[in-house]
């Protein structure tokens, strides 16, 4: 036996906290470094470059001056045309969000309530469009809303109009198709928000003497509020940054922040200006997210 075994243990044995902590830090570092490198290359550096680019000065001839100035931001903020564009983008977001809630809510409520055997299939159908490229669905809307499309054919056949209505290559078409394209996101958010909901609550309220409207406004709607808010945020953010649908359905005649970024970057080759608009769009994003968090906190504190 060694002498060590005869030593009585004392409480002053140094706590073994140090080596494991260093080991832990090493492990965490080893696990996250590849991810951090990936994010650096594919996310952080690009945004840093973009920020730097927004401070340079460019013009419509494609020349880029190596400055550090807010020229591009000023160019945006002093031109009423761009204010109108920002307002149009904001309005698009608000209107599409409102209508997306309007058309998604009944489906979500139905899916929560239904006891149908096909519930799983119906839920899958409601979110299946997410798996279809938005380019494809946008193409579908161009076909639907075109002069020869179902909508115009039906309107003419029923005698409601003589001439085909202009539904593509303008804002109306963009609004309609974006509402549909955002529906699955809204339905998903609503379904998640309805987690706490049970038809028993409706029955309980009804048994206490509430009529259908009262049951809805006093019980169902308040319970679904968190889902509505999440869905609204998601849809709003996706709408004001959407590019494919406004571009294709709008036929190049609908001007929004996202389409302007693309045009400035690829057609005009004014990269500094495109970068500045990008950061203005990001600022709009941040603003909306702050509002959302405020609203959420108010609902949760109730």
């Amino acid at each position: 036996m060694t002498t060590a075994l005869h030593e009585r243990p004392t409480k002053t044995i140094p706590p073994p906290a140090e080596p494991p902590r260093r080991k832990l830090r090493g492990t965490v570092l080893a696990l996250t470094v590849p991810g951090l490198l990936g994010m650096l290359v594919s996310f952080v550096l690009p945004l840093v470059y973009l920020l730097r680019m927004s401070l340079k000065t460019g013009d419509s001839s494609g020349m880029i001056e190596d400055t550090v100035s807010f020229h591009s931001y000023a160019q945006f903020l002093t031109d009423g045309y761009y204010w109108k564009m920002a307002w149009d983008t904001l309005l698009l977001g608000l209107v599409v969000t409102f209508f997306a809630i309007l058309v998604s809510y009944p489906i979500a409520l139905f899916l929560v309530r239904t006891e149908s055997r096909f519930k799983g299939v119906l839920i899958a159908l409601a979110i299946a469009p997410l798996l279809t490229s938005s380019v494809v669905r946008t193409y579908g809307w161009i076909v639907l809303l075109g002069n020869q499309g179902v909508v115009n054919k039906t309107l003419q056949a029923t005698g409601l109009t003589d001439h085909p209505l202009a539904l593509v290559n303008n804002k109306v078409g963009v609004y309609i198709s974006l509402v549909e394209i955002m529906m699955p996101y809204m339905i998903l958010a609503l379904l998640a928000g309805f987690g706490r909901f049970s038809t028993d609550l409706e029955h309980a309220a009804a048994s206490l003497g509430a009529n259908r409207w009262k049951v809805f406004w006093r019980v169902v709607w308040p319970l679904s509020m968190p889902g509505v808010l999440t869905g609204a945020l998601l849809v709003f953010v996706l709408t004001i940054s959407s590019f494919i649908t406004p571009r294709l359905v709008g036929g190049g005649r609908v001007f929004l922040l996202a389409t302007e970024i693309y045009d400035q970057a690829t057609a005009t080759l004014n990269w500094p200006f495109a970068a500045a608009i990008s950061f203005i769009l990001l600022a709009l994003f941040g603003f909306v997210i702050v509002i959302y968090q405020r609203a959420l906190r108010r609902i949760e504190s109730q």
């Binding site: 036996m1 060590a4 075994l5 243990p9 409480k11 044995i13 706590p15 073994p16 906290a17 494991p20």
Partner: peptide, 14 residues
């Protein structure tokens, strides 16, 4: 779990 203090011996070995 590692003890913050004290010692454990099994069959004469720590």
């Amino acid at each position: 779990i590692e003890p913050t203090a004290g010692r454990i011996d099994l069959d004469g070995k720590e």
